[in-house]
Design a protein around this nucleic acid. Sequence first.
DNA 1: CAAAGGTCCTGCTCGC
DNA 2: TGCGAGCAGGACCTTT
Length: 271
Amino acid sequence: MPELPEVETSRRGIEPHILNRTVTDVIVRQKNLRWPIPATLKSQLVNQKIRQVERRGKYILLYTDAGTVILHLGMSGSLRILKQSVPPEKHDHFDIFFSNNKLLRLRDPRRFGAVLWTKKDPLKHKLLCDLGPEPLSNDFTAEYLFAISRKRSVAIKTLLMNSHIVVGVGNIYANESLFSAGINPKRAASKISLNRYQQLVNSVKSILQLSIEQGGTTLRDFTQEDGKPGYFQQTLAVYGRTSEPCPVCGKPIKKISQAQRSTFYCSHCQK
DNA sequence: CAAAGGTCCTGCTCGC
DNA sequence: TGCGAGCAGGACCTTT
């Protein structure tokens, strides 16, 4: 489910319910996610107040005075705020209970997500310390992408999805951004001009920003039991549209595989 | 061989 | 030769 817009929307959705609330209990039903949920998490977290709810890339960070919970939603994870009386379902692996009779519940059928705990600055954690810039920040520029790509033979789409280059651009938005910028996803990253990188950076920023705004409207109420994401109902130009007409030129959208992910593009509009 | 919104890890090649 | 960077492929899982 989650690309950056949904992770950010999830962060915004849970924040008002848990900020400054005290953890009263932690329940782990299935500890085997991407990595095991630490056995000591409950003893570390209970009685702590959530001091900040932040995001770095697709990681959500719950800061307390004792340490920080690092959450990742993987491919299929979602977070809900629920009353404590709501019974868990099959893939509800992890709950944090709060003093306001609510709980934060992680559901993740494929279990590619993660729940970790660190006592040090989470931005120095192994998984976070080498991440690239936030795509919506001023650090993500055409000059940056141009410079970092000079010796890269990988396809631009693969580069764009590399979280060590820039965080938060998942498969949907890599496809959509490249279409919007008119760049062929197979093009070697080293063979793209500064001007075209400017187009790409503009596209990434505007598409992610729009998606966050849409996610914000559809995911606003996290207290409901079915907080289903809806932002991807938005009109996508190429993603998932194999053989459909390109919205610009009408030629059929092509589907190929790159780095074991599906790529959708228009061979006429994207060079 | 099915594909799905993620990304870490391993092992290889290449260039200095 | 040794070393690091870059890269491809495999791995992790369940559901439709």
